[in-house]
Write a protein that binds this DNA or RNA. Structure first.
Length: 319
DNA sequence: CAAAGTTCCTGCGAGC
DNA sequence: TGCTCGCAGGAACTTT
């Protein structure tokens, strides 16, 4: 699902379509996302140039020539679709599986079945067109559509200079792949936390961008039990220990691996259409309840529920 | 059904 | 002892 690697994959897919390009036409077809789009949403975008397309945690941020930033969040089911004029005529819906999650035209050209390796999520067969929430026509010749059936995603326009005052951005912890995130930082953030390390890593204020999947995977790679107290990743006074170092390295590794492979393409497992995702095949514990531990310890992957979310782990080698 | 991410609310415990 | 504050955990949101 859209965790950091997926959002980063989407960002890279949107870049050739949007960066340096101007919004020539914007449609808000269904303004009822998690937050309603502002009434002047279209007016504030049309004519503006995207000077840069960045990412903070799971948020996409498009810098606009107007001085505003378009913040976009995929929620749980949001996806972007990119097509270029010369490949997909805008009028007729493409009967082929549409590109979801935005690897852009290059991936689509390179791979026959782009559906399986886009860093995202749903390929909503038969739900294109009028059901897309937002459509951008760009001066690059690209049409970018945003579709989010569950509507937990949103788009928001904020003045760049007021970005630091934006609560959802300001409250974020360090980027896990950035320099600010190291053992000392993690230990300090976990110090005194009376909750599980699993819950702590899901807390975007401790480290920003992890979700349920990558927390499970990182804890497995670090050999740390998800049930361990968060404060135990640090010694007294919040000093890091060996466990902290391992965990930081594991988080970095799993995110980098996932980004390298274009993120995970999870969809509802009960659906029968199409392939399953891509990095999902590299999951070692997530959604692998009952399977043997890939670490050859002889253990079996277990599923437990922590603060209402599934946790997958190997009780034998995660201590 | 349960799954995804975030916000909000409640309840409990710690501390004064 | 009694109150307040903050944190932790759960519900809600939505859809298939």
């Amino acid at each position: 699902m859209p965790e950091l690697p997926e959002v980063e994959t989407v960002r890279r897919g949107l870049q050739p379509a949007m960066e340096g390009a101007r919004f020539t036409h914007v449609e808000a077809r269904r303004p009822d996302l998690r937050f309603p789009l502002p009434k002047d949403f279209v007016k504030r975008l049309e004519g503006q140039t995207v000077t840069g397309l960045g990412r903070r945690a799971k948020y996409l941020m498009a810098d606009l020539s107007s001085g505003e930033v378009l913040i976009m969040h995929l929620g749980m089911s949001g996806s972007f679709h990119v097509s270029f004029d010369n490949e997909h005529p805008a009028k007729a819906p493409d009967p082929a599986p549409p590109l979801r999650g935005g690897r852009g035209a290059q991936a689509s050209r390179r791979e026959e079945n782009s559906e399986t390796l886009i860093g995202d999520f749903h390929y909503a067969r038969g739900k294109l067109g009028g059901h897309d929430h937002v459509v951008f026509r760009m001066s690059s010749g690209a049409t970018v559509t945003f579709n989010d059936p569950r509507r937990f995603g949103f788009m928001k326009l904020v003045e760049r200079r007021k970005l630091d005052a934006e609560p959802m951005i300001a409250s974020l912890g360090p980027e896990p792949l950035g320099n600010a995130f190291d053992a000392a930082a993690l230990a300090a953030a976990c110090n005194g936390k009376k909750t599980s390390i699993k819950a702590a890593l899901l807390d975007q204020q401790i480290v920003a961008g992890l979700g349920n999947i990558y927390v499970c995977e990182a804890l497995f790679r670090a050999g740390i039990s998800p049930k361990r107290m968060a404060s135990a990743v640090a010694t007294r006074k919040g000093e890091p220990n060996e466990r902290t170092e391992k965990l930081v390295a594991a988080i970095r590794d799993v995110l980098q691996d996932a980004i390298r492979q274009g993120g995970s393409s999870l969809r509802d497992h009960r659906r029968t259409d199409g392939e399953l995702g891509y990095f999902q095949h590299h999951f070692r514990v997530y959604d692998r309840e009952g399977e043997p531990c890939p670490g050859r310890c002889g253990g079996t992957i277990k599923r437990i529920v922590q603060s209402g979310r599934s946790t997958f782990y190997c009780p034998k080698c995660q201590k």
